[in-house]
Amino acid sequence: MTISFRATALILTAAMALSACAQGGLRGGDDAVNLNSAQGAFGSVSDPRSIAYFNQIVGDRVLFAVDQSSLDGASMSVLDGQAEWLMSNPEFTALVEGHADEQGTREYNLALGARRAAAVRDYLVSRGVAANRINTISFGKERPIEICSDESCYSQNRRAVTVLSAGAGV
């Protein structure tokens, strides 16, 4: 029974990986970056209209203090750049993912991630981006990008990531 179960799990894992690659396309986000950055699916960093440029030059994410969803000066300046880029590239829509570190209960962290995503969306809207171009989602503590259990990782995980999609409607 254990053996057949493990075999099933492996097949499912493989299927997941395949579907993630297939979807990679123009989607950014942490999962897609890990899978696709090498293939250049986001275009070239030297092309200022590319997702790669947005992710790496403009900066696709802002970080937060413990339990906080307020934006500091550095975050606002990154988001100013995001807003500017979004307004000059109207064919893109954005999904803002809110995340938390692992030092918290699951459901509170979901709510906290939503707060962070909303703080970013509200700021982008305040800088002129149309509200209907931005959706939000929270992953709570479910999708860490750094996996150690100390502040050096936690600080990277307390984040809101702006993930671009081409075309109207996310």
Partner: peptide, 14 residues
């Protein structure tokens, strides 16, 4: 008697 109720395509919680 472990029985799986969903596959792993979607994140599920609590």
């Amino acid at each position: 008697n472990v029985q799986f109720l969903t596959d792993s395509r979607s994140l599920v919680l609590a």
